[in-house]
Design a binder for these strands. Structure first.
Length: 728
RNA sequence: GGGAGAUUAGCUCAGUUGGUAGAGCAACUCGUUUACACCGAGAAGGUCAGAGGUUCGAGUCCUCUAUCUCCCACCA
């Protein structure tokens, strides 16, 4: 005969339970697959152990976790706990991302605010020390928060995208790509962020719609064709005017060259014909500015035009004249517009709305300009890979290698992104990140690329640039497993099974991981990609600091408990769909945790005198039928879990526990037990078994309350619920 | 300009391969009967955006339309 533990006499208090339980899990060592008992591991048809691995998408060390991270941790923990209970040797690797530009700009902002200093006041070394301190702090917060979420991560394998091992992996990857001619240094138009003083990739651009003046004018009175632009100041860099080959209006001028005096700067303009020009747009004539527009650069390449840079890295004018040089682009624009007016050259001025490219992290307005940068060539055929290009390798991962994307509509987004992919600019002029492993000879200017510096290092200097943060995250599925060493982790756990992340980083990250894995390992990085949606507030707004509607997961946990937060995040959230999180939903699942708690108390109270085996054959026919409907239910739920329908599985468990088990089965059994009918013993047994099995199946979703209950209902020989076998 | 998604009860959303419309919250009625008021019982509430089509049968499949949201590209 068992006695009822006193804690059950009060409502469930998550705050008293969660930290204690997490500590017990940590002590057990079961988050580490090496510690799982072999006799509990299932084998496949060849007698090999079943394995399951996920790498955690590493949160940026830019601050603290938000609800987006919370849903990620919740879903992945459900998968991992479910697979572990299924008898898979399960590995879930934690880590953080140095997030180069994002972290550096946060620290720069803080530095300016708190000490009124810039990074240049400190110098590279001192500044990096500051960034590392900040990253360390941020990292610690993230780890604490992840633990509060109940995540069963193997902390012994924790990684950082910028630690020693990952740096070695980065250098190894870079060197191989360099040797294969996939990484090259080229002078091309890039997105220059004058505010962050660095190049950024196309993916880091954010378009902002703004009102702008659209000016139509001629360079000079003698020039025969009018052109239009929103940026007259760039026109000093024009070296041609392009018209459509079939545009009768301008055909007579094609091939001619004009010397103009534009705002007192002598410019030479050639009239050329190019199919890219839209006859219908503006005047049908395009002023070609090769050095400050991507499209114009390409036209200039085709027609062999001069490329004249007139804007520098600080968004100030250069190569013009005394009056304009050194002026900010905005000031120069005014000067030029006034000059055009004074000289009667301005024909039209109209307000239009246009998209301005800004830098995602600094908000700086992008100035396209030519710069010598490092690129990854996505169109070069690779000998080792059947002469396929990186683009082709990325495409075949989904078409041929069978990576499954959930929901499948994102397959289209993925292929579309790849089809439009240009060479990836990987160098950044920031200090925080992996330094480009390239050295230049001080005298001969020879280029040396290797994993390690040249031995006569005194004759060389290293490239100043660092790498795009996604270069190192692209290696994440295998750099975390020890690559380039052939470690047992790497051999056993790669490819990983699932990549679970937000759909917003499909191009940045998912595509880059596929690129790196297919190229470096000739295998896919993961078999399935599962996308979760954005978590919005109760009104459906994006959570943000400026709206002050961001939910701090720790506050939510303190108020409602982790289990409630996890359920609220999971249920009602299909893959790839945005979801709303509000107090009502959280409250409902906090109540559910309490409901489970109270039902357990009742079952314990009413079954203290039950003696006998937990054998379903001892049930009456009616009770056996009830038990069988539960078996059908759990089979259904298991199938939902196998097919990534977590939202359905969670809802079904909730629904069955509350509406069927608590409201009907317990009520019916209550009578039989209290009235001491002949079915009493069977009723008690039914309650014990159903409770026990539901606690097991609820565990992946609500790990804390179930583990706490398990302590009180388990048999002597039972281990932690964490590693208890799933029922099906 | 190209693409994707959404439109179901007052609100928030489920509805997995086509088979009598579901949940939570809110509102209504009743009930404090020792697991739970963080509760229970009951009732109410929907031309499933609109139109057409396929089908014995459509919220579900097809076509078109409308509104909203997002992503990508970007015109100088």
């Amino acid at each position: 005969m068992k006695t009822l533990p006193e804690t059950f006499l009060k409502p469930y208090d998550s705050n008293q339970v969660e930290d204690k339980i997490y500590q017990e899990w940590l002590n057990s060592g079961y988050f580490n697959p090496d510690n799982l008992k072999s006799e509990n591991i299932s084998k496949d048809e060849n007698g090999k152990e079943k394995k399951f691995s996920i790498v955690l998408p590493p949160p940026n060390v830019t601050g603290t976790l938000h609800t987006g991270h919370a849903i990620m941790l919740a879903i992945e923990d459900i998968m991992v706990r479910y697979k572990r209970m299924q008898g898979y040797r399960t590995l879930w690797i934690p880590g953080t991302d140095h997030a180069a530009i994002a972290t550096q700009s946060v620290v720069e902002k803080n530095l300016l605010k708190e000490e009124k200093k810039s990074k240049y006041d400190l110098g590279r070394e001192e500044f990096l020390k500051k960034v590392n301190e900040f990253a360390e702090q941020s990292h610690n917060t993230i780890v604490t928060q992840s633990k509060k979420m109940g995540s069963s991560l193997d902390w012994s394998r924790e990684a950082f995208t910028l630690d020693e091992k990952r740096n070695f992996a980065v250098r190894t990857a870079f060197k191989k790509m360099y040797d294969d001619g996939l990484i090259y240094r080229g002078n091309r138009i890039v997105n220059w962020d004058p505010k962050g003083q660095t190049v950024i990739s196309d993916d880091e651009l954010v378009y902002e719609e703004r009102k702008a003046m659209f000016y139509t004018f001629k360079y000079s009175k003698e020039f025969p064709i009018s052109i239009s632009t929103t940026r007259p100041e760039t026109k000093i860099g024009d070296t041609a005017v392009a018209v459509h080959p079939e545009d009768e209006r301008y055909q007579q001028y094609v091939g001619q060259t004009f010397e103009c005096n534009f705002c007192n700067v002598p410019i030479t303009i050639k009239i050329i014909a190019d199919k890219e020009v839209d006859k219908e747009f503006g005047t049908g004539a395009l002023g070609v500015t090769p050095a400050h527009s991507k499209i114009d650069w390409e036209i200039a390449e085709r027609h062999n035009l001069a490329k004249k840079q007139v804007i520098n890295e600080y968004a100030k004018m250069i190569n013009c004249n005394e009056k304009l040089d050194g002026k900010k682009v905005g000031e120069a624009r005014e000067i030029i517009v006034n000059w055009l007016k004074e000289n009667n050259l301005l024909e039209k001025e109209e307000e239009i709305s246009q998209n301005v490219s800004t830098a995602e992290r600094t908000g700086g307005i992008i100035e396209p300009m030519p710069k010598l940068q490092w690129f990854v060539n996505v169109n070069k055929s690779i000998v080792d890979r059947e002469n396929k290009t990186l683009k082709e390798l990325m495409l075949e991962a989904v078409t041929k290698d069978g990576i499954t994307i959930i929901p499948d509509r994102f397959e289209k987004v993925y292929t579309h992104w790849i089809e439009n992919l240009h060479d990836w600019c990987i160098s950044r002029q920031i200090w925080y990140g992996h330094r480009v492993p390239v050295w230049y000879h001080k005298e001969t200017k020879e280029i040396y690329c290797d994993i390690n510096p040249p031995t006569d290092i005194e004759n060389w200097y290293q490239d100043e640039d660092t790498l795009d943060t996604w270069f190192s995250s692209g290696l994440w599925t295998f750099s975390t497993l020890g690559w380039p060493e052939k470690t047992s982790d790497f051999l056993e756990f790669h490819p990983t099974d699932v990549l679970e992340t937000g759909y917003d980083i499909l191009p940045f990250w998912v595509a880059r991981m596929i690129l790196m894995s297919k190229y470096l390992l000739n295998e896919i990085p993961f078999r399935t990609v599962y996308f979760h949606g954005l978590v919005r507030d109760a009104q459906g707004r994006k959570m943000s600091k400026s709206l002050n509607n961001a939910m701090d997961p720790l506050e939510v946990i303190a108020k409602y408990g982790t289990d409630a937060l996890r359920m609220a995040l999971i249920i009602g959230t299909g893959p790839g769909n945005d979801s709303k999180l509000g107090d009502d939903k959280l409250k409902a699942y906090k109540h559910f945790a309490n409901k489970i708690w109270n039902a357990t108390r009742f079952v314990l109270e009413k079954t203290t005198d039950y003696e006998g085996d937990l054998d379903i054959n001892l049930l009456t026919t009616d009770h056996k039928n009830i038990y069988n409907t539960w078996k059908d239910k759990i089979a259904d739920i298991t199938s939902d879990l196998e097919n990534y329908r977590f939202y359905l599985a969670g809802e079904k468990l909730y629904d069955y526990f509350w509406k069927t088990f608590a409201d009907v089965i317990i009520e019916d059994c209550k009578k039989e037990i209290i009235e001491e009918t002949e079915n009493k013993k069977s009723a008690q047994l039914l309650l014990i078994i159903l409770l026990r099995e539901q606690i097991i199946s609820l565990h992946p979703f609500m790990p804390f309350v179930t583990e706490e209950i398990w302590r009180n209902i388990k048999n002597e020989n039972d281990d932690l619920l964490l590693v208890t076998k799933w029922i099906n």
